[in-house]
């Protein structure tokens, strides 16, 4: 009984119905078309049972609960510290183990240059000056990058394929993505997004959840720090513009 979801139940139902239909149609009624219909049901039942095994055991409600709690904690931390500077999304080579977001605590308008891997700590120092300090935090992009089958290459097509695979195949939060690279800017269009963006302080600092995933994946692909320079939702499209760092 345990771990059986709607796909598995539907599959088992179709398996019994299809088996009975095809057997009775072939041996009792001698109807080929009805036997074929039974075979259709059997094929669908196999597919449903196979997909049922790939459904996560946690319900979407539990996942949402965990996500909201995590985001809420980070938002509180950022708001309490009064940080206004934009987060820099670092690749795993600069952030130890997996991609993370770095928020400089002091900002004089220019973006800090991070050239060596930061220590795996919440408060990390990136330079020799006393103000060269910031928060190194994990975002949903950090975890989402780990879901990719392989690290994407630093090309427009590979990033587009990786993001579509992630948003459409793994997370099911959008229909498709389109990537356009221009000099040191990357424009990403996410079609029909199903994840809402908040308008809190932390969102202005870290970007929305989709933008955070996009920035983390792009940072990993280019192996360079990325900043979300613009994000907006227009006509069912969610547009994100990233700035590639040095």
């Amino acid at each position: 009984m345990k771990n059986r979801n709607t796909y598995t139940w539907a599959g088992l139902g179709l398996l019994i119905a299809g088996g009975l239909t095809s057997l009775s149609a072939y041996f009792v009624f001698h109807l080929i078309w009805l036997t074929a219909l039974g075979i259709c049901m059997l094929i669908l039942s196999f597919i449903l049972i196979a997909l049922g095994k790939a459904i996560p055991k946690l319900s979407p409600e539990v996942c949402s609960l965990l996500l909201e709690t995590g985001i809420d904690n980070i938002a509180t931390l950022i708001e309490e510290l009064g940080i206004k500077s934009k987060a820099i999304y670092l690749p795993s080579s600069l952030a130890s183990k997996y991609p993370r977001a770095f928020i400089p605590l002091h900002s004089n308008g220019s973006r800090p240059e991070i050239t060596k891997a930061l220590p795996q700590r919440l408060i990390a120092r990136y330079g020799s000056k006393p103000e060269d300090i910031g928060l190194l935090i994990s975002t949903i992009g950090s975890t989402a990058t780990g879901m990719l089958e392989s690290k994407p290459g630093a090309t427009q097509d590979e990033l587009e394929s990786a993001l579509t695979s992630l948003f459409t195949g793994r997370l099911g939060v959008a229909d498709s993505t389109r990537v356009v690279c221009q000099n040191n800017h990357i424009k990403i269009e996410i079609h029909k997004p199903r994840l809402e963006n908040g308008a809190s302080w932390s969102h202005q600092c870290l970007g929305g959840p989709l933008a955070a995933v996009v920035a983390s994946v792009a940072a990993e692909a280019w192996d360079k720090p990325m900043t979300i320079s613009q994000e907006e939702q227009v006509n069912g499209k969610y547009c994100v513009e990233l700035e590639v760092g040095r």
């Binding site: 196999f46 597919i47 049972i49 196979a50 997909l51 790939a54 089958e149 459409t168």
Partner: peptide, 15 residues
């Protein structure tokens, strides 16, 4: 359906 995830794809490979 190339974007179906690996776990589901393994199941569909058996089918």
């Amino acid at each position: 359906y190339v974007y179906i995830n690996n776990k589901a794809r393994r199941g569909l490979a058996y089918v």
